[in-house]
Amino acid sequence: MRAPGDGHGIMAGDVLLAVDGVSLSFGGVKAITDVSFDIRKGEIRAIIGPNGAGKTSMLNVINGFYHPQKGRITFKGEMRRRMRPYEAASQGIARTFQNVALFKGMSTIDNIMAGRTLKMHENFFWQCLRHGPAMREEVEHRRFVEEIIDFLEIQAIRKTPVGKLPYGLQKRVELGRALAMEPELLLLDEPMAGMNLEEKEDMSRFIVDVNNQYGTTIALIEHDIGVVMDLSDRVVVLEYGRKIADGSPAEVSSDQAVIDAYLGVPH
């Protein structure tokens, strides 16, 4: 895989995404209340908090699926009242979902190829013929997808319809689909939920590798505190939609509010 180019003058360590005073509610339910934090280029940023704290909603705000009532989002230096899904995707934000959201009727390859859609441009006419430029484009992107398949070690299930795969593999395919977008910012919503120890280790390795080899910035929601401590550079903690702590894993885990709110609470 190629490293995504950063032609926007954002260097490793600079702020890639900043969320500023975001509030979101559904009817009477306040999902997020006045949350601000930032994500720096190249880091793994964990978002943790008890169930219903608003973590998933936060990701949905970042890639434009939910529209916050208040606040601003700055991505790659550009400030917006809100993101739009298409904008977020084309600007380089990709994600995986808490409850796997694969295209069930399609094979592994087609799922990951679908992640390349934004990068494919050959027009309708050539698509009808599937020859010449359209086929060249198809082959070129297939090659890229095969690299992802090798990276994630899912060669054997290339042509299996993903609906038939076990849960752990589905999560892996979903990561592959997100990687196919060559994102600058990768949002992972509980990528290890429901996995056994071995699968978790594999997934952790993939996440670290993506981060190291391609410099992809990652926002990670995870309930397993051990994983969070190992992987992440900085952690933001949400509770009942509010931010209660923000800092390095060590700082956060010694924070009294966090211990009370989160670590003390069995989940």
């Binding site: 699926f65 694969l102 679908a114 992640g115 859609t117 934004l118 689909r177 977008m181």
Partner: peptide
Amino acid sequence: IAAELMGI
């Protein structure tokens, strides 16, 4: 929804 969030 997933399709939309992938830029389709």
